[in-house]
Design a protein around this nucleic acid. Structure first.
Lengths: 341, 341
DNA sequence: CTGTTAGCGCCTTCAT
DNA sequence: ATGAAGGCGCTAACAG
């Protein structure tokens, strides 16, 4: 059974192939009656467009490329879900790759995406290599960097300030009377580094910063590593009275290890996570965490690409800060337990 | 700057475009010296193949389509990671969509994938609609169904028996002296239904089955819903002494709610999760869970597609059962605490 | 509003 | 082992 082409549909509806093409892509440019005839023929013959041919002829595909550093990090699954929900139903489709948090792997992946003339690119972070930036800048398609902010966008940035989020969280902990607050960081990707900067600057402001309160590892975050890092932390800084974690998994691990060591939270130890992935709020006690608008970021990035491809102009402000929200819970509430929920 | 094409590379190396094409795709069919010359020219000119043109001419793309029900479920991120790791470095790339656990959405998604003439398809589950099955069967590319087993594969199945996994888990709990074991199920997708079947058959075998021990919800699983469902369960069946959960999140939620209600685990309540996503093993006490080889499944599915496209024959047995492993931990150990770890 | 012409870059088939 | 011819299905650019 041969493939149904535009020519077939054209014959069926008594017009030429190009007219069918137009009727399908720019319905407003053909007469209403013809439009109906074409639609009927399409349905009757079961015509489905050939994307390869379309891409070849127009030098523009309907693929939106998304680069995330990891699939297994819930943060990025939420981004993907947000983007995918927005794109779904449109003519565009999503092609995803993970960079494994490697800027070099990313640099190798980008040209592979660009050769398919994508309708848009979404890429995680603002710390691409110069080569990657150059490729993307010359890509002739909307490019959205996500998950952070910066004053030097390639095209558009949609994210939140990891730095500011950390400042808020640590300010809150200081305000609640914590004085020896550790930073517990895993992976140490660029966004975690921003959080570390926010942490450090805040503690320095109060004269509370101490190198010994820094516990970091290049390993990926997990509940297990969280447990382990608390042990490490208490050896290095036994007088530590709280931790700001770069990640919820780590915070949950620390909370469980606190239970094990009969350290009460927040009385003996204050705890703040990052991302607010859901489990933190359910722990005993509930753990304070920084909520990040992951799905919204994915959705907004996708929306921008859709809009630009529909001919819309880019916004004045090329850096969209969707903000983060500190979810204050019992794990950091020492002073004013009655006032806050 | 104009695109570098095969013709350009041909001129540079003193041969025709088609020869360059061959040198690139079937290096063994051209003379070694020419091969080197072509490679040099490719590098010099920075030639990158045009996938759209290639797809159009050969009626075969290098895209491998993957359909998962959800991005946010860790199980599928692991599958994607496994597949993506296997495919990475090959000439193939991955295109992903989520069906939102809807067979109808899946039915709409499949033709969209098939029009791009994929090099292979990976699809979750064995319960596609007949229409989906028919499309896939006629797809002229390797098709792998994953995450379950069945004796009626479309092409290949790679997974494990959800039914058998549940049987093992529930057998273990019965053996450990639990008598009023609940089934706590979220989402109730086909694989969860299989687990329910295994649970039911096992309890019936011992005369322990009771409808009142069935707690299910169409909602997605989460720690929060786990907490909530324990409450529901204890109202319906106050004498319940344990739960087999279709999911780790739910098990973790139940464990936390047990803490809250001062129910000791496993003494007052036995608990078994599903998938062994990592947190279960870190809880206090550690929670028994069924480990499922998610990444391996993704990898094996991708490997099959790569191999078939390289001309390899399919295996005799079209259903590859990678098995599951019950990770026995303190949350279900009542009888023989010393014997097991 | 609709049609004609001429490719897009590559691969299949058939020669040599 | 290499090449020539032709076409994959669609769309840009230009008519009319």
């Amino acid at each position: 059974m041969k493939r149904v082409t535009l020519i077939d549909v054209g014959k069926e509806s008594g017009v030429s192939a190009i007219t069918v093409s137009r009727a399908l892509r720019n319905p407003e440019r053909v007469s209403p009656e013809l439009r109906e005839r074409v639609y009927a023929a399409v349905k009757k013959l079961g015509y489905v467009p050939d994307s390869a041919a379309s891409t070849l002829a127009s030098r523009r595909s309907t693929v939106i490329g998304i680069l995330v550093p990891s699939f297994s990090n819930h943060v990025f699954s939420d981004v993907l879900a947000g983007a995918s929900d927005t794109i779904e139903g449109s003519k565009y489709s999503v092609q995803i790759a993970n960079t494994g948090y490697s800027a070099l792997k990313e640099e190798a992946l980008v040209p592979r995406f660009l050769t398919m003339k994508p309708a848009g690119m979404i890429i995680t972070g603002v710390d691409q290599t110069q080569a990657t930036r150059d490729m993307l800048a010359g890509a002739d398609c909307p490019v959205v960097q996500i998950m952070d902010v910066s004053d030097d966008p390639i095209d558009l940035i949609v994210g939140f300030s990891n730095f500011q989020a950390a400042v808020e969280a640590v300010e809150h902990m200081v305000e609640q009377g914590f004085r020896r607050i550790a930073f517990v960081g895993t992976r140490m990707d660029p966004r975690t580094q921003q959080r570390l900067r926010g942490y450090r600057q805040t503690l320095e402001k109060y004269g509370l910063f101490d190198e010994r309160l820094l516990i970091t590892t290049p390993k990926k975050s997990s509940v297990e590593i969280g447990r382990h890092l608390l042990g490490e932390l208490l050896e290095t800084a036994p007088d530590c009275d709280g931790a700001f974690c770069n990640n919820d998994d780590v915070a949950v691990g620390i909370a469980l290890e606190c239970q094990n060591r009969n350290m009460r939270c927040p009385d003996d130890f204050g705890l703040c996570g990052f991302n607010d992935l859901g489990t933190t709020s359910q722990m005993n006690p509930p753990i304070t965490s920084v909520f990040t608008p992951r799905a919204d970021i994915g959705a907004a990035a996708a929306r921008y690409i859709l809009d630009r491809n529909a001919g819309q102009q880019p916004p004045e402000n090329r850096c969209v800060d969707l903000g983060s929200t500190l979810k204050v819970r019992a794990s950091t509430l020492r002073n004013d337990r009655k006032e806050r929920q």
